[in-house]
C-alpha cells in the first residue's frame, strides 16, 4: 500500500515537472532573439507579404497566449511541430534518430556502470592496497579526459593507425547487409564511439562506488557482519555493496539522461547518426521547432530516468518509502 502511494506521489511529481518543462521550453524559444521566419528566408527577394503568409502558416502571427494554446494542443496530439530545415514533422525527424542514440548510450552506460561498480567495489573494499591505488589512478585519468578528446584518440589509434575499426557511421555504406550480418556490422561500428563514452563514465562510477564503499566499510553494521563470522564475500555483497550502491543508483539515473543529451560529442566525432548529431545540425541550421522538440525529449528523459531511479530505490532502500533515510 505504502509502495503504491509512493509511486503515485512520484508519478504526480513527474507529470507536474513535465508540464513545467513544456512551458519553459515554449518560453525559451519565444525569448530567443531573432525572427525565425527571417532566418528561414534570408533571400531579400522574399516580399513582406510572403513573410506574413509564412507567419500565418506557422501560427506566429498570433499573440503569445494564442501561440501557447496552439503549442499545448499540438503537444497533446503528440505533434512536436514542423522542422524548418528538414521540412518534415519534428516527431518524424527525431523518431528516425532516437533508436541509434539509445542503442549507443544504453550499451555504453551498461558497460560503464557494471565495470565501474565492480572496479570501484574492489578498490573501496581493499582501501589503501596496491590494487586500490592502481584502480584509483586509472579512474582519475579516465575521468579527466573529455569524451571528444578520448574519441579522437581512439579514432586515431584504433581506426586510423591500427585499422581495427571503422572511422565513422553506423553501417558499412552500400554493403546491403541484412539480419545477423547487419547487426554485427552495427556493433563493429559502435565499438569506438561506445568506448569513448564508457571510458569517461567508468572513471566516474569507479570514483563514486569506491568512496561510497570506503564510507560503508567504516559503518558499525560491517563490524556486526564480521562479528557474525560471515564469509568476506557475503559481507561484501550483502552488507557493504548493497548499502554502497545507493548513491550509485542515483548517479545512474542522472547519467542516463545526461548521456542522451551529452552524446553530442561522441556522435559528432564518430559521425554517428543519432540525436546528438541532430542537435548539432539543428543548432547550425537555426531549426527552432526541431531544437524545441529535442529539448523537450532531453528534459522528459531526465524526468523519466529520475522516476525509474525512484522506483529502483524503493526496491533497494526500505527507508525511502517512509522518508526515514532523511532523518
Amino acid at each position: 500500500m505504502k509502495t503504491l502511494q509512493f509511486i503515485l506521489k512520484k508519478l504526480t511529481g513527474a507529470l507536474i515537472t513535465i508540464v513545467a518543462i513544456a512551458i519553459a521550453n515554449f518560453a525559451i524559444f519565444r525569448i530567443a532573439p531573432g525572427d525565425p521566419i527571417r532566418m528561414m528566408f534570408k533571400d531579400p527577394r522574399v516580399s513582406t507579404e510572403q513573410l506574413q503568409a509564412m507567419r500565418v502558416k506557422f501560427g506566429l502571427d498570433k499573440s503569445i497566449g494564442g501561440q501557447f494554446i496552439d503549442y499545448v494542443k499540438q503537444l497533446l496530439h503528440g505533434n512536436l511541430g514542423f522542422s524548418f530545415w528538414q521540412k518534415r514533422p519534428v516527431a518524424d525527424v527525431i523518431g528516425d534518430r532516437i533508436g541509434q542514440t539509445l542503442i549507443l548510450v544504453v550499451t555504453a552506460l551498461v558497460i560503464a556502470t557494471t565495470l565501474g561498480i565492480i572496479l570501484g567495489a574492489i578498490s573501496g573494499w581493499r582501501n589503501g592496497s596496491k590494487t586500490d591505488r592502481t584502480i584509483l589512478s586509472l579512474s582519475l585519468v579516465l575521468y579527466s579526459i573529455p569524451t571528444f578528446a578520448m574519441g579522437i584518440l581512439l579514432l586515431l589509434v584504433f581506426g586510423f593507425i591500427l585499422l581495427l575499426f571503422p572511422l565513422g557511421g553506423i553501417t558499412t555504406p552500400a554493403s546491403g547487409f541484412t539480419g545477423f550480418m547487419y547487426l554485427k556490422d552495427v556493433l563493429w561500428h559502435m565499438v569506438l564511439p561506445a568506448f569513448s563514452i564508457v571510458l569517461w563514465y567508468v572513471g566516474e562510477y569507479i570514483l563514486l562506488t569506491r568512496s561510497s564503499m570506503v564510507e560503508v566499510m567504516d559503518q558499525d553494521y560491517i563490524v556486526t557482519a564480521r562479528s557474525k563470522g560471515l564469509r568476506e564475500s557475503v559481507i561484501l555483497r550483502k552488507h557493504a555493496l548493497r548499502n554502497a550502491l545507493l548513491p550509485v543508483v542515483t548517479l545512474s539515473g542522472v547519467n542516463f539522461a545526461f548521456a542522451i543529451a551529452g552524446v553530442i560529442e561522441a556522435e559528432t566525432v564518430f559521425s554517428w547518426p543519432g540525436i546528438g548529431r541532430l542537435t548539432y545540425d539543428a543548432v547550425m541550421k537555426r531549426d527552432y521547432p526541431l531544437l524545441q522538440g529535442i529539448f523537450l525529449l532531453f528534459a522528459v528523459s531526465v524526468v523519466v530516468a529520475n522516476f525509474i531511479v525512484d522506483l529502483i530505490y524503493t526496491r533497494i532502500d526500505p527507508r525511502i518509502k517512509t522518508g526515514a533515510a532523511h532523518e
Partner: peptide, 13 residues
C-alpha cells in the same frame, strides 16, 4: 554491541 541504531544493516529485515 552498543548503539544498535548503527549496528544493524539498514537495508535488511
Amino acid at each position: 554491541r552498543q548503539e544498535a541504531q548503527n549496528a544493524l544493516n539498514p537495508v535488511m529485515t
